[in-house]
């Protein structure tokens, strides 16, 4: 029993300890002029969908729920956000060339179609971020439309 208690104590200390490890927060008040929704003057329904389902990891501003401020959840998230922004940052949209926009749009469409995005681990905790079939069609059609307008 004493061993269990001691291990529990050490774990508790470790848990408290890691709360002091500094992390980068992905938060920004400014929406740059290069933002996807601004540039394309997207309708309200599309904006809302993208902001709830994509922008947490694919923009410079994450809407953190309270439990995401606790370690080790924050580490797990930080990694996801860095990767996500690396692949696609909606805030930087207008900085991409037409060639790259085209590639990104293709990937967006394919990933939504195949249910690979939003990530299941993300929708697990963000129920409202998962896209219904009709929402999927809405977003995909919109992305197709933008893709066609590029050519």
């Amino acid at each position: 029993m004493r061993i269990v208690k001691l291990i529990a104590l050490v774990l508790l200390v470790a848990f408290v300890g890691i709360q002091f490890v500094p992390t980068k927060r992905n938060q920004s008040e400014i929406v740059p002029k290069t933002d996807f929704l601004l540039v394309n003057n997207s309708p309200k329904n599309i904006s809302t969908l993208l902001q709830t389902s994509c922008y947490d990891c694919h923009s410079n501003n994450t809407n953190y729920p309270w439990y995401n401020k606790i370690q080790p959840v924050t580490w797990f998230l930080e990694h996801h956000i860095t990767d996500g922004k690396d692949e696609l940052n909606f805030n930087e949209w207008e900085n991409y060339s037409n060639r790259r926009k085209n590639s990104k749009l293709k990937s967006i469409i394919n990933q939504i179609k195949d249910d690979e995005m939003p990530l299941w681990s993300y929708t697990l905790v963000h129920q409202n971020a998962s896209l219904s079939e009709s929402e999927k069609t809405l977003v995909i059609d919109y992305m197709e439309q933008i893709k066609d307008s590029l050519q």
Binding site: V10, V13, G17, F20, V21
Partner: peptide
């Protein structure tokens, strides 16, 4: 117990600094 707590805390702080 106190020693362990101190050790755990110090090692964690050290780890985070190292990172």
């Amino acid at each position: 117990t106190t020693t362990i707590m101190v050790m755990a805390f110090v090692s964690l702080t050290a780890m985070s600094c190292k990172d």
